[in-house]
Design a protein around this nucleic acid. Structure first.
Lengths: 350, 350
DNA sequence: TTGTAAGCGTTATCAT
DNA sequence: ATGATAACGCTTACAA
């Protein structure tokens, strides 16, 4: 298989062949000015003959000062990022908005390498999703380059448009639901708090050392209602990791009657851990999730959870990024979650 | 939130401020030539003062004729594409290779829109993953633009480097394993055959009207051994869709003693369908998967399956793309799968 | 070691 | 409706 380093034809070549000037040929392609039908046809024919596929995006980017590319920064490992259905939904939402707006989506991961690569990619804007790292460094770099920045559920940052979710309030609402049912001893199974992907007991030190906004806010919301709730930090986003965390939590805190899990997948794992330990849900243990993803067929329970508009968050981020890049300014948006009462919460055993 | 349309400083400005020529400043940044330590320091200082973040990638792309961007074309809906763990693994492999090589990854979806967007994005190369569409149109467009093309498990295409998997042979090997156990009536649960994402009986017409290489090859492999095996086409990649397909297959073909599922997730669904119908696996029904993804905690079975090197495929594709872009030529690679004997296949009930 | 000059392929502005 | 000209911001021979 060979790659002929054949010289690609340029607009100038096409123009020459069509017997017009380069500027006219340009107009014929962009339709940005008045060109007679006859000349346009001649130009297009010349292009066809020369195998010219249209203006070179590289030159266009330079000339227009825009590349039409918006980057999305995700968790360091893609397998990780994509194991979270919410992340995927958000990405889908972003893509939904970018495509029609004529923007392409560049996938960046939250690694030193990739953040260096940031310097290399011709991006007009960037969207930060579920990053656990410290955002100051990349954000500063983006700002310096004049790249528009949108962040989803991040701590407030200067010059960044924020797309938010009521993580704290929603979790608190879920917690109140449990308290109203009569629960007093509640445990937490949280999403990861940083890059250390291991199951571990939740401690104040861990929280302080972390900057994973979403996880922290959800912990706060739960503790707004149950200030002393113990917890276990899951090693990841999957049901398996929820299972592991659930086992730990139930073993170390046998007194609890309800678990606030920070995602539906984690909740699913917790339910498995409970059933494994011979408990029934919700009779012996209530379980609350977060996200509202569809878990068809994966469980026979109808999970009580906080339903959040994942795809909408992505769309909002995409729209904001496009607006910023197109010179307008964008306001941040705030989304809220709704408590879905399923069959996994009930009053505690008498 | 505002976006100051402040004029970004240019290399020329930095050079002026440092009292050197633009070319020297360029060298100071790229390190591509001899620059005295003193001048370099001066240039860097000037850059710092002006808030210059380094050469503009847009200008670099034009000048160098390369953008450092490689596109990856996936299934039309990202939620779809990412619901297949193999796709995700492949993508991870691609990212593994691109990052260190200094390339960024552009995510494209297999839609008319996106394929049009192809025209807009400054890509140096492109990798085609699990596309169900007709590839001729996009491939022609890429070729015309001089974009290097790598395809994973696609029908042979002129001027495209192929990364292959022994789909047919591996499936045939799995099928022989079943035959050796004594199975004679075997059913198929296949991956989607096109964009029609619905559960439906497998028919010759469907196969002929389709160009989903992988699915077709795996069907052929199965029928190399069981020529008349009936089948059901799943509506997607997930266990839920395997469940639906499994139900259909078991209902319409109660005589079968084994199922060849085209992915582990589908196999998982088939196992659920069987258990739901009161059959035990493998006693009443043998189930064979494909992929060898880890299904920890999701099932109590050790799935008999064909283990394929998903991440490696991605890496190979990434390497090939980089090699092509860097002017070398790349040979395609062919990977093979290995039969893992688990506990889900056994001789048929006597 | 540093500077000069010539583009890379396109589009925007301004004439004609 | 079309053309000439000048950038866009950078890199790279080549000259000094």
């Amino acid at each position: 298989m060979t790659t002929a380093a054949t010289q690609r034809p340029t607009l100038a070549a096409v123009a020459a062949r069509a017997g017009v000037s380069a500027s006219t040929a340009s107009l014929a392609f962009s339709g940005a000015g008045p060109v007679s039908e006859a000349t346009r046809a001649r130009v297009l024919a010349a292009a066809e003959e020369l195998g010219y596929a249209g203006p070179d995006p590289r030159a266009q980017s330079l000339r227009k000062g825009r590349s039409g590319i918006i980057g999305v920064v995700m968790e360091d490992r893609l397998q990780y990022a994509f194991s979270d259905p919410v992340n995927v939904a958000v990405l889908e939402g972003v893509a939904d908005e970018l495509g029609p707006a004529g923007f392409a989506l560049l996938l960046l991961t939250d690694t030193a390498e990739s953040v260096a690569g940031i310097a290399l990619a011709p991006m007009d804007g960037v969207i930060l999703i579920g990053c656990s790292r410290d955002l100051d460094v990349p954000v500063t770099a983006f700002r310096q380059r004049g790249i528009a920045i949108v962040a989803i559920e991040a701590e407030p940052l200067e010059g960044v448009v924020h797309i938010d979710l009521d993580n704290r309030e929603a979790t608190a609402a879920g917690a109140r639901h449990l308290r109203e049912l009569g629960h007093e001893r509640v445990g937490l199974v949280t999403l990861p708090l940083g890059s250390a992907h291991e199951t571990q007991p939740l401690s104040d030190g861990l929280i302080e050392g972390s900057n994973v906004h979403t996880t922290i806010q959800r912990i706060r919301g739960a503790r707004d209602v149950f200030p002393d709730a113990p917890g276990v930090v899951a090693a990841g986003f999957s049901a398996e990791e929820g299972l592991a965390a659930g086992r730990d939590l139930l073993a170390s805190h046998p007194e609890i009657t309800a678990v606030i899990a920070q995602s539906d997948l984690l909740a699913l794992g917790v339910i498995r851990a409970a059933e494994e330990a011979g408990m029934r849900v919700p009779n012996d243990l209530s379980v609350l999730g977060f996200d509202g993803i569809r878990l068809d067929g994966t469980t026979h329970h109808d999970l009580t959870t906080l339903v959040q508009p994942s795809v909408e968050k992505g769309r909002a981020a995409g729209r904001a990024a496009v607006a910023l890049v197109e010179g307008g300014d964008a306001r941040g948006e705030s989304f809220s979650s709704e408590l879905h009462l399923g069959s996994t919460t009930a009053p505690p055993r008498a």
